[in-house]
């Protein structure tokens, strides 16, 4: 296992075929986040049971699984958004760059800047497009001059593929954009604080197919610049955008591996059933 975790050069398929049990790691490229034996409870109810996954820098990681299986819950552990739910309790080890993010000395505010999040429903602030992007850099003091800030806004919008569409109306309200544009605005807003990881929770579920295609294209472009984790209930989407896929079922991690393997040659019966549409 350790060998697998550290392997950076071995080819994807060989790594996976060697592993038999549900893999902790589908490691390839530098590790960004690791999770070990994570349990999550909502009150007495266990929503995540002993999940261990590694997130690498160079790959897009997809979480798939039937509704209610705990994908969002687990994703929200990675930037401690679960802290906002009083009854949620997280145990296990989760690290970012080797640092334990649940350690007492970890600053949650900074963690959430380093691990950005894009939500299911586009949620721009009811402010101008410019202010939507500039808000994060402002509160973290990332820009010292107006030019710096303008620069950050422009590059963030460019990276999110939105600059061309909005450069003439940066002062318009962010909520006046179309759904797909709003979601890209939210991605740009996350990018603006220069995160290391971007978590996306079903970012396309409220969007039409064309807007979805644009977001998927964007994820391709962002790959490598940020470690990306995407939750999706759309298996084609997982196959299209990700290199690693984790299949969750009833709060447990059933299988984690190279996306192409999961979709063409899953080791687990449950994964096969889900992928072939027999339930879910």
């Amino acid at each position: 296992m350790t060998e697998l975790l550290d392997s950076t050069s071995s080819s994807e398929s060989s790594t996976m075929t060697e592993s038999s049990a549900p893999a902790i790691s589908a490691g390839d490229g530098p590790l960004k986040m690791t999770t070990r034996n994570v349990d999550v409870f909502y009150g007495d109810k266990q929503a995540i049971n002993d999940v261990s996954i590694d997130v690498t820098m160079d790959n897009v990681t997809a979480f798939i699984g039937p509704s209610g299986c705990g994908k969002s819950t687990f994703l929200r552990c990675l930037n401690r958004m679960n802290d906002t739910i009083p009854i949620a309790k997280v145990t296990g080890d989760i690290t970012l760059e080797g640092e334990d993010i649940y350690a007492p000395k970890m600053d949650v505010v900074q963690l959430r800047a380093r691990v950005g999040m894009v939500f299911q429903k586009p949620n721009p602030f009811p402010k101008s497009i410019y202010d939507n992007i500039a808000y994060g850099p402002r509160i973290h003091g990332l820009a010292s001059t107006k030019e710096d800030l303008d620069n950050i806004v422009e590059t963030s919008l460019q990276r999110a593929g939105l600059w061309g569409e909005v450069q003439d109306r940066l002062q318009d309200s962010g909520t006046a954009l179309s759904g797909g544009q709003q979601q890209r605005l939210c991605i740009a807003r996350a990018i603006a604080v220069d995160p290391e990881v971007i978590l996306m929770d079903e970012p396309c579920s409220a969007l039409d197919p064309i807007a979805t295609a644009k977001i998927e294209e964007l994820i391709h472009e962002l790959r490598g610049k940020y470690a990306i984790v995407i939750v999706t209930h759309n298996m084609q989407q997982a196959a299209r955008v990700s290199q690693r896929t984790a299949f969750f079922h009833l709060g447990t991690l059933v299988e984690y591996g190279v996306t192409s393997d999961i979709f063409t040659n899953p080791t687990e019966e449950k994964t096969r059933d889900y992928i072939t549409g027999r339930y879910g």
Binding site: M117, N123, F125, C186, R189
Partner: peptide
């Protein structure tokens, strides 16, 4: 005030007080 606005602000690293005074109170 929709919870999604609070999540949005928390998600880019706003502190609880920044969420309250920059987003919740104005709305």
């Amino acid at each position: 005030v929709p919870p999604s606005i609070r999540e949005a602000a928390l998600g880019i690293g706003a502190s609880q007080m920044q969420v309250v005074f920059h987003h919740v109170l104005p709305l």
